Simulated scan of single mutants.
Amino acid sequence: MATQNGGPTQNQAPSLNVLAQYIKDFSFENPNAPRSLGAPQSQPDVNIQIHVNAKPGANNEFEVELKVEGGAKVGGETLFAFELVYAGIFRVLNVPEQALQPVVLIECPRMLFPFARQIIAEAVRNGGFPPLLIDPVDFTALYQQRLQENAAAQQPAGQA
């Protein structure tokens, strides 16, 4: 069916558009500076956690938050710590209902990640350390892990 008078076509292709992206919350701590800025005695222990949240809005829009938190320690002493909530507003059109959640929780954070990675790398560098270049993230695996955790939480006690 063709478009008539600006109306929608019956077989429109799915689309995903980034309407906005922004830092929602950010902190960087360098609690032991300047002492921590010297060459470490051993390889720092770097810990990074990533969480994805999404909230529906109006007009097929979703706010997707990518929360990245972590830091580095040597011998139990903190070198630096950070927390970033980087978000985007996405418009998702013509996506089947069964595919909507994976699109929002996999594809949207995949689009946000390079920007969040850059913000963290620059903050760590500006804190006096070599830039922290976070490895690419498998958002499909994170999504599947979240599904498994939700399924396990919904199982009655005593069942495996």
Rank of each mutant, 00 (worst) to 15 (best):
K67D: 00
G75C: 03
N11P: 02
F28P: 02
D45M: 14
G75V: 04
I89E: 02
N11K: 05
R110E: 09
P136T: 11
D138Y: 11
F28D: 03
P34V: 12
L37K: 07
I89F: 00
T140A: 07
L16A: 03
R146C: 07
A54I: 10
Q155F: 07
L112F: 07
N53Q: 15
A2Y: 14
D45G: 05
A20N: 15
E65R: 06
R91S: 05
Q21K: 06
D135S: 14
Q145H: 10
F62S: 06
F28N: 02
R146D: 14
N47S: 13
D135M: 13
E65V: 08
L147D: 05
L133Q: 15
G158E: 12
A81H: 06
I119Y: 02
R91F: 04
Q41D: 12
I23F: 09
G57V: 06
L93A: 00
P31F: 12
E61M: 08
N30L: 04
I23A: 05
P14E: 09
V74S: 02
G71L: 03
S27Q: 12
E149G: 01
N94D: 15
R117Y: 07
E65Q: 06
L105N: 04
V95E: 06
N126L: 11
Q4C: 07
P109Y: 04
F26K: 04
A141L: 10
L112A: 01
L142G: 00
E69M: 02
V95Y: 01
P31M: 12
D45T: 14
K24R: 14
G71Q: 04
L112D: 01
V18T: 11
A39N: 14
Q41F: 09
N59V: 09
S15K: 08
N126A: 13
Y22I: 09
S42H: 09
L79E: 02
L100Q: 05
N5D: 14
P14N: 13
G7I: 06
G127T: 08
A99W: 08
F113I: 03
L112W: 00
R91M: 14
P109F: 01
A123I: 09
V92T: 00
G88H: 01
A87I: 01
I120V: 10
L147A: 11
Q118N: 15
E77F: 00
L100C: 07
S27E: 08
I48M: 08
I48D: 01
K67E: 03
F115H: 12
K73S: 04
F62A: 01
F62D: 02
L147R: 12
P109N: 08
P109H: 02
S42Y: 07
E107I: 06
D138E: 11
A54E: 12
C108W: 03
P136L: 12
A13W: 13
E29S: 06
G7D: 10
A153I: 09
T140I: 11
L112P: 03
P136N: 13
I50D: 01
N59Y: 10
I48G: 02
A99G: 07
A152N: 15
